[in-house]
């Protein structure tokens, strides 16, 4: 079957989709977006978390045919998604404030030696992405995309979460490397940076 939907703001079409394929498979194998991860394919690990019409879901449990006409945001689109949000949800619209903000994050990234320009086409990262790097929340990184999507949505809903709130919101995302402490640090860091007055 054919499936049309929007991924990270772009219209996409997949052909010859087997009816039993999941959204995760279509993203990874048909759309060149392998950022969403295939760790369990049974909704137990959260590595494949994407936003489906804004709602975090396990993409492994969404049948491909169910996303017809809907909007999906994956980790690959998270930076743009966060940028658009910070300028009031104008999709694709320019927004001076958020651009400044984004550059602010980028500068912090350079400070913390996260790498050189040219490694990655991304001039900017979402605040939560930067915080994961800075806090040491990434080891093997396989759980990271799902955790980023879930954490970003948490901070969108609840800008100042308590530790218990963070744990509850991320309880559907397994990590085997870190023992979660650095992930807690990363979310706290992103929340703290988010609440800093602009320009600081």
């Amino acid at each position: 079957m054919r499936v049309n939907f929007t991924v990270n703001g772009r219209k996409q079409e997949a052909d010859d989709v087997w009816e039993g394929e999941s959204l995760l498979y279509v993203l990874r194998e048909r759309m060149g977006l392998p950022g969403s991860k295939n760790a369990c394919e049974q909704g137990e690990c959260g590595s494949c978390t994407v936003r489906l019409d804004g709602v975090p879901v396990c993409s492994c449990l969404v049948a491909a045919g169910q996303v017809e006409g809907r909007e999906v945001v994956t980790v690959e689109g998270l930076a743009d998604f966060a940028k658009n949000r910070s300028c009031g949800g104008h999709e694709g619209g320019a927004c001076g404030t958020s651009l400044q903000e984004a550059q602010g994050w980028s500068a912090k990234g350079t400070d913390s030696q996260t790498g050189e320009g040219g490694i990655s086409p991304h001039a900017t990262l979402a605040p939560i992405q930067q915080a994961f790097i800075d806090a040491g929340a990434v080891q093997c990184g396989f759980c990271t995309p799902g955790l980023l999507v879930a954490s970003d949505e948490l901070l969108e809903r609840n800008p100042n979460p308590s530790d218990a709130d963070i744990r509850e919101a991320l309880s559907g995302n397994l990590c085997r490397c870190t023992g979660y402490e650095k992930i807690m640090d990363a979310v706290r860091l992103a929340a703290a940076r988010q609440s800093e007055p602009e320009g600081v």
């Binding site: 009816e19 999941s22 049974q42 449990l61």
Partner: peptide, 25 residues
């Protein structure tokens, strides 16, 4: 299939191959 949280597990793990999936979304 609505939320898919049961059906898709069965499909992903090859426990079930229904002739038709009826999407209620």
């Amino acid at each position: 299939i609505a939320g898919g949280t049961d059906v898709m597990v069965e499909i992903n793990f090859d426990h079930r191959r229904p002739e038709y999936l009826l999407d209620l979304n």
